[in-house]
Design a protein around this nucleic acid. Structure first.
Lengths: 233, 233
DNA sequence: AATATCATTATGTCTATACATAAGAGGATA
DNA sequence: TATCCTCTTATGTATAGACATAATGATATT
């Protein structure tokens, strides 16, 4: 028997996506209404609604009340970039992870940092410098500032065994962040810690983190020469 | 009157998120069932379901049939990285965009490319090299290979006025891709085109694109010295 | 003790119905 | 022509009820 199973929202979603990919509906085209699609597929409008909502979330289609649903003109491609702990990055390569604290110092936020984190004048910060190793090879140099006002308990953490990232993940697990990526030449300090020649190109990632609009931390991570970051969409 | 508006799924979502952030429910904790939450909020179970589904999509909670809903132990942080056209990157900086084709050549895929794109031996590719300028300053050098079998029409496109990225977006608007980022030293060619000293650190992004499991294109984009890429989550 | 069976339970999904809301279309008015 | 109004329409959301499904835990069997 060709007794076919009932149509679910995933079926609708996939068929609609396929039609868009096959140019049955081209960029900018108006799709049938939910009602019409529901009739075509023999399902409830709510089912079509969920299917189309998912496609809209993915940026495949644009929806507007009264106007209807259109195939997105310029599909907003956005890559998902998994933010993982350095420990995990290292262990994913089947390498042995080692962490070492270089320096721990309480200080007043320098001007550039106060500006970066939007801190008041004279705000207290904890400045940490640390190294991450993969099989005892330098993997990443970490330069971090933590807003003490946002995480008062940080003054009691010594960070000799647990890295600041892991510690913060436990204290402030849900936060927003802004990232920047760049290529920079190794300066004296970086070339020293990362065991490379001066001016070697290094991949650098900076991250500013907030929790409920309050600045928490700014970190600059410099990776060993040749490091590649991966992502997909 | 304290006549409060009816509870919607967004309210439920936000209240649950707030409780998680406030550690009312900590990492790994079991949340009340949908039924219980629906009773608490005075709404239908479907409403709670949608609220929790959104939080699950964001990686805030984990849900499993019969077991229930738990606060995610290691919230998967993932940054959203908008993939934009080079033209847009330039114009977003209020700079004048200019594109120039450097070379266009049909060839058989070299071994490393066949391997990268998973192409059969002797597959035909179109090799393009191009420059993107911002206010007539070198902005990005683009080195691209397109799988002719996947996009036969590409042999008729001359790419003198429209860049390959924009052209492909029109032809293959929906695709998957894998990205890698790295810092590399400028070689002779890059230092020439990007007007910088040899060995200058350059931010480089590589992208491999598929459409329905068929490899479409591989591109290596090298940015001018000092370029920063931004993202957030 | 190990394995198969079955009831239970929380989530996953679908449906029909209802009402809310944004926004386009047309007409009336100034 | 420009502005305001109402009507209409497609999407957005809520609901009660139903059944599906995965996973757990208990029970019975080997």
């Amino acid at each position: 028997m060709t007794e076919r199973a009932k149509i679910g929202f995933q079926d609708v979603r996939d068929v609609v996506l396929e039609r868009i990919q096959n140019r049955v509906w081209s960029q900018g085209d108006l799709l049938p209404t939910e009602q019409e699609l529901a009739e075509e597929f023999g399902c409830a409008r709510a089912t079509v609604n969920r299917a189309l909502r998912e496609l809209a979330d993915r940026g495949i289609i644009d929806r507007k009340r009264k106007s209807g649903t259109r195939v997105a003109v310029s599909p907003v491609k956005q890559a998902k970039l998994e933010i993982v702990l350095t420990r995990q990055l290292v262990e994913d390569r089947n390498a042995n992870y080692r962490y070492a604290l270089v320096e721990r110092k309480e200080e007043t936020a320098p001007g550039w940092l106060a500006s970066q984190l939007d801190l008041p004048m004279g705000a207290k910060v904890l400045h940490l410098r640390a190294m991450h190793y993969a099989d005892n090879q330098p993997f990443q140099y970490e330069d971090r500032w933590i807003n003490i006002a946002a995480v008062p308990k940080v003054v009691d953490a010594d960070f000799t065994t647990v890295g600041p990232n892991e510690w913060l993940l436990g204290e402030v697990p849900f936060s927003n962040a802004e990232l920047t990526f760049a290529a920079v030449p190794a300066d004296d300090e970086l070339s020293d810690y990362l065991a490379c020649a001066k001016a070697t190109p290094l991949f650098q990632m900076e991250r500013t983190t907030w929790f409920r609009s309050q600045p928490v931390t700014f970190v600059r991570m410099s990776f060993h020469p040749g490091y590649q970051m991966r992502s997909q969409y």
